[in-house]
Amino acid sequence: MQDPIGIPTCFSSSEKLSDDQAAVTRSGQSVFMTVYRTKIADQCRLITITWCKNLLLHGLSVSVEGPEGESQYTCKVELKPWYFWRKQGSKRFIVDGKAVDIFWDLKAAKFNGETEPNSEYYVAVVCDEEVVLLIGDLKKDAYKKTGCRPALIDPILVSKKEHIFGKKKYSTRVKFLEKGRFHEISIERKNSSGGGNMSNGNSSIGVEPEMEIKIDGLLVIHVKHLQWKFRGNESIYVNKMRVEVYWDVHDWLFSPGLRHALFIFKPILSSISLSSLSSSSSPPLFSLTSTPLSSQTESSGSLEGLNASGSSDFCLFLYAWKLE
């Protein structure tokens, strides 16, 4: 379940993304990373869109995977309040001899307090006169600005990685399907009365830690005796779609200072669940069952977005940082 953090810092002027865990400890910084797979320069490559936010600015980074995944071509934008010209622009770099252009328009972007904008923006990646990736709602403006046609192959959403901070409660919004609706995920650490006793300073006699995970306000996972079950997994159902949930909260309980827990949400799609999703208009259905621990957190699949096992390419990696 361990996943490299790879946290870029909004303050860095370097073209290389920082892997230093200390970067995330900067006051108030949140990070949201989205990874897509698409065809660029005659090869299937990963594109990573990273948004970071701290007390001073918003930052945007667009990285394209280099040859054999060894290096990256990166475009960084710092949205400082006094740098209005940086909120719209373009940048070009060469990938295997072919030009790749990044276009962005964030002049009127609405963030609504979140790290990633909600509306009134676009970010487009262009290669071979095709828009190979386009995010945001201003799609007509993007096509007009780039003067290019949509790519014949749609990009595949591979993963999202989000870093959030809190003392007891952590929440985020996510789409388990690219064309699905947003779901509200809430994770909360609690203490309950019991006979447990832990040797470190995080729990006392008569108090046992618990954890609750809610989706759209409904409890889907309740872990009691968290000090013994700090790593585990469950299978839940969201709108009849199975979602594997993995957690590792060891550092919450046993490590002092600013430490993070890792949660992974992995949709498992079948032909039955896909037909149910397309035809169902009923309220969300949740249920809870046990399932063997799986290590299928890597992305591999067809251009349709599903692999042979029926598992979606998509994974949500949620890093929940504990503030004292």
Rank of each mutant, 00 (worst) to 15 (best):
K80V: 01
H163K: 05
R37Q: 15
G113M: 05
L55D: 10
E298F: 09
P267Y: 06
G28E: 12
I156N: 12
P256W: 11
Y122G: 02
Y170V: 06
V62T: 08
K214W: 04
L60F: 11
A151N: 13
E178K: 07
L316I: 03
K179F: 13
I135S: 06
W247N: 02
S295T: 11
I47D: 10
D128E: 14
E130I: 01
Q43I: 00
G166Q: 01
I7R: 09
E68G: 03
S61C: 10
D251W: 06
S61L: 13
T50P: 08
L57Y: 09
V238G: 01
V77C: 04
R231S: 08
K91G: 01
R149F: 04
K98M: 12
F93E: 09
V131P: 05
F182Q: 11
T25S: 15
F32P: 00
T289A: 08
G28R: 08
K160D: 10
F254L: 08
W252S: 04
S295V: 06
E304T: 15
S271E: 13
T38R: 01
E120S: 10
D313L: 15
S270Y: 07
A22W: 07
F317A: 05
L318D: 04
T9P: 02
S30R: 15
L152N: 12
V158M: 10
D128G: 02
C315T: 13
E178A: 14
S312W: 06
S30T: 14
I135C: 10
I153F: 13
R259W: 07
D20K: 07
W247Y: 13
D3M: 14
S276G: 15
S119V: 09
K168G: 05
S199P: 00
I236V: 14
F317C: 05
P155C: 06
K91W: 10
A124D: 02
I185F: 08
K175I: 00
F254H: 13
E184N: 15
S199N: 14
G257R: 01
G301L: 02
K190F: 11
R231P: 00
Y237I: 03
P267W: 06
Y319F: 14
V35L: 01
V100E: 04
K76M: 07
N233P: 00
S300N: 13
G196D: 14
D137V: 09
P209M: 05
V95C: 10
D96G: 02
M211Y: 04
R26C: 09
E130Y: 03
F11P: 00
D20W: 06
K224W: 09
S235N: 13
K91E: 10
S199A: 15
V131E: 07
K214Y: 08
I5N: 00
S255E: 14
D19F: 03
S294M: 10
K76W: 07
V123I: 15
P283K: 04
S281G: 13
